[in-house]
């Protein structure tokens, strides 16, 4: 099944956070089209190690598109050309023999490069820590069926909750904004009755934290939605924004 192809990769190499980086070109020969992009990089790394060259560092873990660890730009596209796909689920059958691919890390002030294609996304955790939760202590939850939640509501909340925190939205945004990431969490909790008590405070804190961490604002280019491997809609940005304005200007928070 499938043929083998050869590619030219232009990969960002940067030995450490403070080191100067540069692009390095590698030829990759005769890789099966059935393997994933990361497995292709594995092969490259095996070869590099055997040649005594430091392997290309990239973040990865589950390799089934759910942990959110992996992600970099391939020819200017976050997670590569496929829609709704993390780079670990991107297969080489998507490429043609002789393709020239530029592979770069996520670029954002809030995502400093650690090494090669690995960036530090701790800022996303900080946004969640700024209220991206329901304040409910273990033990004081009412019966799960005590509060009926319509199927459509639950499903829609899930659409937002599906965010894997990979950072592709930030990377793809011309403003390096984390609006989609932040708004998806705001929106998920705002959909559900359990999220109501803290709804206004949550959105104000999370939005302000996002801004303070050095992410940009939303210019509504919608590149985030297109880059999102979980295809989270930009509608969540509108909704969260309305919550923010309401909290700020109506409720005076």
């Amino acid at each position: 099944m499938g043929d083998t192809i050869s590619l030219t990769l232009e990969v960002w190499r940067q030995p450490g956070p403070l080191a100067k980086g540069r692009f390095q070109t590698y030829e990759v020969k005769d890789v099966s089209q059935n393997i994933s992009f990361l497995e292709m990089l594995d092969l490259l790394n095996q070869r590099l190690i055997s040649e005594g060259i430091e392997p290309v560092h990239f973040e990865h873990d589950c390799r089934e598109g759910i942990c959110g660890s992996c992600g970099f730009m391939i020819n200017g596209q976050a997670h590569g050309p496929d829609l709704g796909t993390t780079v670990c689920q991107l297969h080489m059958r998507r490429f043609k023999n002789g393709d020239h691919l530029v592979v770069e890390p996520w670029r954002a002030r809030a995502f400093p490069v650690i090494r090669d294609l690995v960036v530090d996304r701790a800022s996303l955790d900080k946004i969640i820590a700024a209220g991206g939760y329901n304040s409910v202590n273990c033990g004081n939850a009412p019966d799960a069926n005590a509060m009926p939640i319509g199927r459509d509501t639950a499903e829609e909340a899930f659409d937002a909750a599906a965010c894997i925190g990979c950072g592709a939205c930030v990377a793809a945004c011309k403003n390096a904004s984390a609006m989609l990431f932040t708004s998806a969490k705001v929106g998920q909790l705002a959909m559900l009755p359990q999220g109501q008590p803290e709804r206004s405070h949550r959105v104000v804190r999370m939005y302000d934290e996002m801004q303070a961490l050095g992410f940009g604002a939303c210019s509504w280019t919608q590149d985030c939605e297109a880059a999102c491997p979980k295809e989270i809609s930009v509608k969540w940005i509108s909704r969260a924004k309305r919550d923010y304005l309401k909290a700020r200007f109506k409720e005076g928070l």
């Binding site: 939760y133 033990g139 939850a141 319509g150 639950a154 559900l192």
Partner: peptide, 20 residues
């Protein structure tokens, strides 16, 4: 109790149309 706790946290479990 785990289910109760998760629902309170906002985990969007699958629901029936009636909300259960």
């Amino acid at each position: 109790n785990i289910i109760d706790q998760a629902v309170a946290q906002g985990v969007p479990f699958a629901r029936e149309y009636g909300g259960a």
